[in-house]
């Protein structure tokens, strides 16, 4: 069981959370908040490993979290997206990207 990493109290910030929603990552049901990126929701649930590289099958997670490095590519509702740039949606089906993405 992964440790859930939500910050409960903070000396400077108050976090305004959106509506509670649920989505799926590799068949696991995960709770998230509307307005969060897929990456924020996955990290909060303790998920670190987002994809496998095409050539050597290296495991990758987020690195820059601002849409520059492409380390966090996942397949969300059948589209290859950057997890750090894409907002999570109710019922979204997110899978690890394994190898090269397919062009539909």
């Amino acid at each position: 069981m992964e440790f859930v990493r939500r910050i409960v109290e903070h000396p400077v910030l108050e976090y305004e959370k959106g509506k509670k929603i649920r989505f799926f990552f590799e068949d696991r049901e995960i709770e998230a908040f509307e307005g969060e990126t897929i990456a924020a929701a996955l990290e909060a649930a303790g998920v670190r490993w987002y994809r496998e590289t095409a050539k050597y099958g290296r495991k990758r997670g987020i690195f820059c979290a601002i849409g520059k490095c492409s380390s966090c590519l996942v397949v969300a509702d059948n589209r290859v997206v950057k997890a750090c740039q894409t907002l999570v949606k109710e019922g979204m089906i997110v899978k690890r990207l394994r190898g090269k993405p397919q062009i539909a």
Partner: peptide
């Protein structure tokens, strides 16, 4: 992570990196 990524998770989303 890049240090900025840790900052994004903490300060924008309230998630411990």
């Amino acid at each position: 992570f890049g240090a900025g990524a840790a900052q994004t998770l903490m300060n924008m989303y309230g998630v411990k990196p």
